[in-house]
Simulated assay, not measured.
Amino acid sequence: MSSHASENPVTVSPKARDLARTSIIIDGHVDVPYRIYDNWVDVSQRTTEGDFDYPRAIAGGLNAPFMSIYVPASLDGSDASTLRAHHLIDHVEAIVGRSPDKFAIATSPAEVTAQFKKGLLSLPLGMENGAPIQGDLQNLQAFYDRGIRYITLTHSKSNLISDSSYDENRQWGGLSAFGKDVIKEMNRLGIMVDVSHVSDDAFYDTIKESRAPVIASHSSLRKFTPGFERNMDDSMLKALAKNGGVIMINFGSTFVDPVARKWSDERSSKLKEVETKYGENSNEAAEFKRDYRKHTPFPYANLDHVIEHIDYAVNLIGINHVGLGSDYDGVGDSLPINLKDVSTYPNLIQGLMDKGYSDSDIKKILGDNLLRVWMHVERLAQND
């Protein structure tokens, strides 16, 4: 499959558009809050930048994107980390407060369904990086009370909860003792446990510790990107399915296409050389970051690569364990051709139809699988 695909637009059938319009489409990971944190833009209107706004979401049929409450690892271990998470939740509340005719926070699958029927776009909340909990389970309760319904245990660095797939420092060899307590408390409260970003050892620890099904809110398959631990390998996928969970496929080119992955790895290694020689904050490093793409064009993936990941996962672990976690507004300018923003879900639906997927199976991938897990997590919490 060519990684340097042309921008041929997808011919979307009326049936695919209708499926987009009549299905609950849940996206496991959209980074709007961080995008508007320093530079507020009104996403109820068409915006010139970014991957998400209300008109494009409506055009794409998206009605329940998880708003990522992303707290950078640079704030780990500080009160600023907890504060940042609360501020980002404030931003989502502000989006809803300014446009209650368009948006509503969703804290349960029932609310997602009810708001879908009313024609409102639901904004459920997922926290990316558990560091804002800061070793205190009362903070976890506070975030649940504010609407957080999944937590990605760590991000780019090992934190108090878990080791990270991106960090060579494996201080816990998986989950920490506190991390195991966090998972128990998440199960008790009804917060989904998200294993995107964790190390392989932490993944298996999580599967062992969680009584509820877990999710990978925005991960793809290591089968296509060997050596990239941020994606999940076949054994992990099987363990996830056995646990009843869902992998939500990340759309970023470097997650789905080996050519784009190689480009990214080569860029990182060359940047490291420059930073080692001149310093991380040097003019030379800034110049490298600015100019690298000019000399070495980025090899965008395309829609077919994403379909390939979905199809492989479905064939390996079954239709009930696969969903969508685009990482819109979170992967910069690396989105695949024909999946550039939230208006393009009909392209994906058409791709699945062309592969022979039935309407009910497509609806499972679009949102029903995640709703099932979320309801299971809720039920377990209510029975505690």
Results as ranks from 00 to 15, higher is better:
residue 143 F to G: 05
residue 173 G to P: 03
residue 149 R to S: 05
residue 162 S to V: 12
residue 141 Q to F: 03
residue 150 Y to A: 02
residue 172 W to Q: 08
residue 145 D to C: 09
residue 159 N to S: 07
residue 160 L to D: 07
residue 170 R to Y: 09
residue 173 G to A: 06
residue 160 L to E: 07
residue 169 N to T: 14
residue 163 D to S: 06
residue 160 L to W: 00
residue 150 Y to G: 02
residue 171 Q to L: 10
residue 150 Y to F: 15
residue 168 E to V: 13
residue 145 D to Y: 09
residue 166 Y to H: 15
residue 152 T to S: 12
residue 165 S to F: 02
residue 177 A to E: 06
residue 146 R to N: 00
residue 175 L to T: 09
residue 178 F to V: 10
residue 152 T to G: 15
residue 151 I to L: 13
residue 173 G to N: 06
residue 179 G to M: 14
residue 143 F to L: 13
residue 177 A to C: 00
residue 147 G to D: 07
residue 152 T to A: 12
residue 163 D to G: 02
residue 146 R to V: 01
residue 155 H to M: 03
residue 152 T to H: 09
residue 168 E to N: 14
residue 141 Q to W: 01
residue 143 F to C: 11
residue 172 W to N: 12
residue 151 I to G: 07
residue 162 S to P: 11
residue 169 N to I: 14
residue 168 E to S: 15
residue 147 G to L: 05
residue 176 S to H: 09
residue 149 R to Y: 06
residue 140 L to P: 08
residue 149 R to E: 04
residue 175 L to P: 10
residue 176 S to K: 07
residue 143 F to Q: 06
residue 154 T to W: 00
residue 165 S to V: 02
residue 148 I to W: 01
residue 141 Q to L: 03
residue 152 T to D: 07
residue 171 Q to F: 05
residue 174 G to A: 08
residue 153 L to G: 02
residue 179 G to A: 13
residue 143 F to A: 09
residue 163 D to E: 07
residue 152 T to F: 09
residue 163 D to Y: 01
residue 151 I to A: 12
residue 174 G to W: 03
residue 144 Y to P: 04
residue 145 D to E: 15
residue 161 I to K: 03
residue 178 F to P: 08
residue 155 H to G: 01
residue 145 D to I: 06
residue 158 S to Q: 01
residue 174 G to D: 02
residue 164 S to H: 07
residue 178 F to Q: 11
residue 150 Y to T: 02
residue 146 R to M: 07
residue 140 L to H: 10
residue 158 S to Y: 00
residue 140 L to N: 08
residue 142 A to W: 04
residue 164 S to P: 06
residue 159 N to H: 07
residue 170 R to K: 15
residue 169 N to G: 08
residue 168 E to C: 10
residue 142 A to D: 12
residue 166 Y to A: 15
residue 159 N to L: 03
residue 146 R to F: 00
residue 147 G to A: 12
residue 169 N to R: 12
residue 172 W to L: 09
residue 153 L to A: 04
residue 161 I to G: 03
residue 158 S to H: 01
residue 178 F to L: 13
residue 160 L to H: 04
residue 154 T to A: 01
residue 166 Y to Q: 14
residue 174 G to I: 04
residue 162 S to Y: 14
residue 164 S to N: 08
residue 160 L to T: 01
residue 149 R to H: 08
residue 173 G to H: 06
residue 159 N to A: 08
residue 151 I to T: 11
residue 151 I to W: 10
residue 152 T to L: 11
residue 154 T to R: 00
residue 153 L to E: 02
residue 178 F to H: 12
residue 151 I to K: 09
residue 169 N to D: 13
residue 143 F to Y: 15
residue 155 H to S: 04
residue 145 D to R: 12
residue 169 N to C: 10
residue 144 Y to W: 13
residue 174 G to F: 05
residue 158 S to K: 00
residue 164 S to L: 09
residue 142 A to Y: 10
